[in-house]
């Protein structure tokens, strides 16, 4: 089962590299924000899988929860900032 988790984690890392194309070359700010939010959700799963591979899930699950939380607040704050930028 550990090999299966490693394979899943490796596949997610490759997907993160594909999404990174949108972050680097994506036209405009909004494409970049959407791609960064997608990378954040993938990272959450990668963190949990790292916990299972190392055998210390009870530690990594807290880190993953905080990551999900800060990802959400960050996306909300950036979208609010861009809206505000237009009004000025």
């Amino acid at each position: 089962m550990s090999t299966f988790f490693l394979a899943i984690g490796l596949g997610l890392c490759i997907l993160v590299f594909f999404v990174l194309y949108r972050v680097v070359f994506g036209p405009g700010v909004f494409n970049r924000i959407a791609a960064i939010s997608a990378i954040g959700t993938k990272t959450l799963i990668i963190l949990l899988i790292m916990g299972f591979v190392y055998g210390r899930v009870e530690m990594f699950v807290d880190i993953s929860l905080v990551y999900a939380l800060l990802n959400f607040i960050g996306v909300l704050a950036v979208s609010k900032f861009l809206e505000m930028e237009k009004e000025l």
């Binding site: 009870e58 530690m59 807290d62 880190i63 905080v66 939380l69 800060l70 607040i73 909300l76 704050a77």
Partner: peptide, 18 residues
């Protein structure tokens, strides 16, 4: 467990920022 005063304080601050 991972965490402590600084990390918990940052999460409390993040809830107020939200």
């Amino acid at each position: 467990s991972p965490g402590g005063g600084f990390q918990g304080g940052v999460i409390l601050g993040a809830s107020l920022v939200l």
